[in-house]
């Protein structure tokens, strides 16, 4: 399972793809089971250079019925920083936020690797 993420150009906000739109909550992100559909969305997203930057797909796993980013990094992006847990998206709370905050372990995002360049 995958989701498509990026940062919004104008303010840097972490955003997720949902049926042609970029939305702010991971809980509302469109989930892709079909790689071809995911890649089509990615191509579409990458073609919006005045809307978003750093568009990439992230891997998700099922954590007690809630799809959760595999990588710790992506969970932090979906939540906010952990020192203390009051800033960013996590401030809103909710079931998905709680699940993400409790998830542990797992591998890094595959999609991001190419972007980690200085």
């Amino acid at each position: 399972m995958k989701a498509l993420t990026a940062n919004r150009l104008i303010d840097g906000e972490v955003v997720f793809w949902r049926k042609g739109e970029w939305i702010e909550r991971f809980a509302d992100a469109e989930l892709f089971d079909d790689p071809a559909v995911a890649e089509a969305a990615e191509a579409h997203g990458k073609n919006q250079p005045t809307v978003v930057v750093d568009v990439y797909l992230i891997d998700l796993v099922d954590a007690d019925g809630i799809p959760t980013p595999v990588s710790y990094r992506e969970r932090l992006r979906a939540l906010g920083p952990t020192n203390p847990r009051q800033h960013g998206k996590q401030a809103e709370g909710g079931k998905v936020i709680a699940a993400l905050a409790q998830a542990s372990g797992a591998a890094r995002s595959t999609g991001r690797v190419n972007l980690i360049k200085r």
Binding site: N7, L9, D11, G12, E13, V14, P49, V53, D54, R73, L76, R77, G80, P81, H87, G88
Partner: peptide
């Protein structure tokens, strides 16, 4: 483009980090 802009914004101390600029 973003590729051209990135070194410019960096020269002005502006990074894109995990949650925001």
């Amino acid at each position: 483009t973003e590729e051209q802009f990135k070194p410019i914004r960096l020269m002005n101390g502006l990074y894109l980090q995990l949650h925001a600029y």
